[in-house]
């Protein structure tokens, strides 16, 4: 695991973090969906590259799942939902973009510090991968916290799952069970949350979380 191999894997995992940052400052839903597709695409490339490097053919399946479901099916489906709901032009931000980016940088630094210290004995590629994966997870969570639209919550959640898949494939010898379960959990989450969006829309005419809170009769 040296030289160019390491560099490429590093680059792919790093670009996944980069795309996570891009997600953070997209305040239009359709653009956000595009970036999410890109996110899944980078993940698929990274996993495929891991499959090639580790000589583990089962990882190609994972890459394929990521490519088909996360990069194509889910963004297309979500786009249809968004168009149907007529919110594809909606602009939303809770935090200021600058603040969110600063916070994200802090999170990446934190995950680097933690992971590089904890895994000092492990293989360097796995170390870097884990650190990046944790950053992606944290950035996904950050997005879920800062957005108020339900669709962005779904996307934040799924980019969080992408981070988990990255972690699972980065380490050598993870059985396929893990990836399949992760992929399916995303799919199920998507279905469930998609249904919820429609139901919410039917009842309240909006997918704005603040509106839901108002319906529960609470102030913030």
């Amino acid at each position: 695991m040296q030289g160019i191999t390491f560099d490429i894997a590093h680059m792919l995992a790093g670009s996944l973090v980069l795309v996570s940052f891009m997600q953070l400052y997209q305040d239009r839903l359709s653009a956000l969906l595009n970036i999410f597709a890109l996110h899944a695409l980078v993940l698929a490339m990274s996993v495929a590259y891991q499959a090639f490097v580790q000589d583990a053919p089962h990882l190609y399946i994972t890459a394929l799942i990521a490519l088909v479901f996360k990069a194509i099916v889910i963004p297309v489906a979500l786009r249809r939902i968004v168009v149907k709901l007529g919110i594809h032009r909606e602009i939303e931000n809770v935090f200021g973009v600058g603040l969110a980016m600063l916070f994200g940088i802090g999170l990446v630094a934190l995950s680097m510090v933690v992971m590089l210290r904890v895994t000092s004995a492990a293989d360097p590629l796995a170390r870097e991968d884990l650190a990046f994966a944790l950053s992606v997870v944290l950035l996904g969570l950050l997005m879920m916290v800062t957005r108020r639209n339900a669709v962005s919550l779904v996307i934040g959640f799924m980019s969080l799952e992408n981070g988990l898949v990255l972690a699972a494939t980065g380490a050598k010898g993870m059985p396929l069970v893990v990836e399949i379960s992760v992929a399916f959990s995303v799919l199920i989450a998507f279905i469930v949350i998609g249904i919820f969006l429609f139901r919410i829309r039917e009842r309240f005419d909006t997918v704005d979380m603040q509106a839901m809170d108002r319906f529960r009769g609470e102030q913030r």
Partner: peptide
């Protein structure tokens, strides 16, 4: 609490 508050707490 609201959903976002829960997420924020977890985060």
């Amino acid at each position: 609490l609201t959903i976002r508050s829960y997420l924020t707490l977890v985060f």
